[in-house]
Simulated assay, not measured.
Amino acid sequence: MKTIDIFKALSNETRLSMLHWLKEPEKHFPAQGAHIPKGINFVGGVCVGDIQEKAGLSQSTVSSYLNMMQKAGLLESFRYGQWTYYRRNEPFIREFAEQIRTEL
Results as ranks from 00 to 15, higher is better:
residue 10 L to W: 04
residue 8 K to H: 01
residue 29 F to V: 13
residue 87 R to Y: 02
residue 59 Q to T: 15
residue 8 K to W: 02
residue 35 H to N: 14
residue 97 A to S: 15
residue 65 Y to N: 03
residue 40 I to E: 12
residue 61 T to M: 12
residue 47 C to E: 14
residue 61 T to E: 01
residue 52 Q to P: 07
residue 14 T to V: 14
residue 35 H to P: 03
residue 37 P to H: 09
residue 69 M to Q: 04
residue 87 R to L: 12
residue 99 Q to D: 08
residue 102 T to V: 11
residue 100 I to A: 13
residue 80 Y to H: 15
residue 78 F to Y: 12
residue 1 M to D: 08
residue 75 L to F: 00
residue 74 L to M: 04
residue 98 E to R: 07
residue 31 A to S: 09
residue 60 S to N: 14
residue 61 T to Y: 11
residue 15 R to L: 00
residue 50 D to R: 08
residue 66 L to M: 09
residue 29 F to E: 05
residue 85 Y to E: 04
residue 17 S to Y: 01
residue 38 K to Q: 11
residue 7 F to R: 07
residue 30 P to F: 00
residue 101 R to Q: 13
residue 82 Q to I: 05
residue 21 W to P: 04
residue 8 K to G: 02
residue 31 A to Q: 06
residue 74 L to C: 01
residue 102 T to P: 03
residue 38 K to D: 15
residue 18 M to R: 04
residue 76 E to N: 14
residue 58 S to D: 07
residue 6 I to Q: 02
residue 80 Y to C: 05
residue 69 M to N: 03
residue 20 H to C: 10
residue 18 M to L: 13
residue 81 G to S: 12
residue 46 V to G: 07
residue 29 F to S: 09
residue 89 N to T: 11
residue 5 D to L: 04
residue 52 Q to S: 11
residue 45 G to V: 08
residue 8 K to E: 02
residue 104 L to G: 13
residue 7 F to Y: 09
